[in-house]
Design a protein around this nucleic acid. Structure first.
Lengths: 140, 140
DNA sequence: AAAGTAATTGACAGTTTTACTCAGGTATGC
DNA sequence: GCATACCTGAGTAAAACTGTCAATTACTTT
């Protein structure tokens, strides 16, 4: 049971973006330098974050990325969903088309319940929460 | 975020073992046939389950495995721990020796909290719960 | 219009992890 | 003593993960 570094990077990058934005676009290059994440890898992530309508891009000089909506309205599970990291613990339950084993699998309910707990927890935390926390840490 | 098939197999095998035991040792061969899990792979898993004191072995003809304690006292998280599947979502928090990034990482608390939720949920379910559920499913 | 900046895209490669198999060995009961 | 069933460690193929590279497109400023 591991959260992929892809998901971890995405969340860290989003916090960093929000922390340094203040209404202005932030370039991936800046985030790359501050968080020590390869620029080209960030690019991959932000393509997905844009499609997930978590951020919007501004092209040209002085461009970069902005939050697509207020940080309060961005939940951690949405960030992870966007980079295509499944939160459901077993593969047979992945797709929309349900799970054939539902009636047979004894253990189905365990994983299903676990998946709901995970989502529940991650959707209770917003990007704003994390940013506020980061700010208070920086002060010390 | 995926539960490995190793962990899934371990839980399934344990339910199957408990379901067909009734105080008598159950051979891995039987479990293998019923659950369609390779015998040699099961052997690997049960070495770990034995070390984790989830089951005990009986050698020789007519031998097999027995629960090491009542099914009510075996929690799902213990089964998964035994087969060495980490329940902590990020690697830096894996070992006993804590996590160096605790003070810096903004996202640390998210993953830490998530790990606790996962453990909390899986420790609330016992092997007995799953076996009872399996029995009622078989009746239909 | 030209030049420079930055986002965008797709293909691809190295490494690690996973999920197993194989080939033996050891203890036990009949 | 032989059949049964556990026990052990090494090895391997495939998949997933983590990233890089090269080339393109879009936009802004001069």
């Amino acid at each position: 049971m591991r959260m992929s570094t892809k998901a971890q990077y995405a969340v860290r990058a989003m916090v960093n973006l929000n922390l340094h934005s203040e209404g202005q676009p932030v370039s991936l290059r800046d985030i790359s330098l501050r968080e020590s994440i390869s620029l080209t890898y960030l690019e991959q992530l932000f393509v997905k974050l844009r499609r997930g309508e978590i951020v919007k891009s501004v092209r040209g000089p002085g461009g970069g990325y902005l939050l697509a909506r207020p940080a309060k309205d961005i939940q951690v599970d949405e960030i992870i969903d966007s980079v295509e990291e499944s939160l459901v613990p077993v593969s047979c339950m992945d797709q929309k088309n349900g799970c054939a084993c539902e009636d047979q699998c004894v253990t189905h309910n365990v994983w299903h319940g676990l998946g709901e707990k995970i989502r529940q927890f991650l959707s209770s935390i917003t990007l704003d929460d994390l940013t506020t926390e980061a700010k208070s840490k920086l002060k010390h």
